Simulated assay, not measured.
Amino acid sequence: MVDVNQLNNIFKETLANNKKPERILIGYKLYAELMKDRRFFEEVVGSAMNPSKRTYQNIKIKVTQDDRQLELKSSG
């Protein structure tokens, strides 16, 4: 099971490698699990009125059909 701390660690690793995170790809089941975390839930739900435009730490979220996917697309 992935939690918010693991997601935050992925961000830190990406930034440490001088890459800029652009999009988070999250599988639908994993997204549902992460939404149970209050910090993640509050930031994601508060980020936009439209569910397709939600973000976490100012990075766009795309929910995918791959149930357990967790990938961070980055540039740089």
Rank of each mutant, 00 (worst) to 15 (best):
L30Y: 00
I26Y: 02
D67Y: 11
V63G: 01
P51D: 03
L15Y: 06
E43A: 12
S52C: 06
N8T: 03
G46P: 05
Q6P: 00
N8C: 10
T64F: 06
E22S: 08
R38C: 05
L70T: 04
I24H: 02
D37E: 14
S52D: 14
D66T: 11
Q65W: 05
R68L: 15
N58T: 13
K19I: 02
A48Q: 09
L70E: 00
R23I: 08
D37F: 05
T14N: 05
T14S: 09
N5V: 12
K53S: 12
L34A: 08
Q69C: 04
N58A: 10
Y56C: 04
Y31V: 02
F40H: 08
M35L: 15
K36R: 14
R54V: 06
R38P: 01
K29G: 03
P51H: 07
R68C: 14
Y28A: 07
V45I: 12
V44G: 02
V44R: 05
N17P: 03
R38M: 07
Y28M: 07
K12G: 04
L25D: 06
L34H: 05
E33A: 09
I10M: 01
N9L: 13
R23A: 03
E13M: 14
K12N: 10
M35T: 10
G27K: 00
T55F: 03
E43T: 09
A32P: 02
R54W: 05
V45S: 13
P21W: 05
I26Q: 01
L70C: 04
L15Q: 08
N18S: 10
T55V: 07
I26A: 01
Q65A: 09
R68N: 14
E33M: 09
Q6W: 05
N58S: 14
N8Q: 09
A32F: 06
L15P: 01
R39E: 10
V45E: 12
G46W: 12
E33G: 02
E22A: 06
M49G: 11
I59V: 15
K19H: 15
K53F: 08
Q69P: 00
P21G: 08
T55Q: 10
A48G: 10
L34E: 03
K60S: 06
Q6F: 10
Q65P: 00
K53C: 14
E33I: 04
V45R: 09
F41Y: 11
K36S: 08
L7V: 13
K53R: 10
R54M: 13
K29S: 14
A32H: 07
M49C: 06
R23G: 02
A32S: 15
R23H: 06
Q69E: 11
E13Q: 15
Q69T: 03
I61R: 01
R68A: 14
D67L: 08
Q57H: 15
S47Y: 06
I10W: 00
E22W: 02
K62L: 15
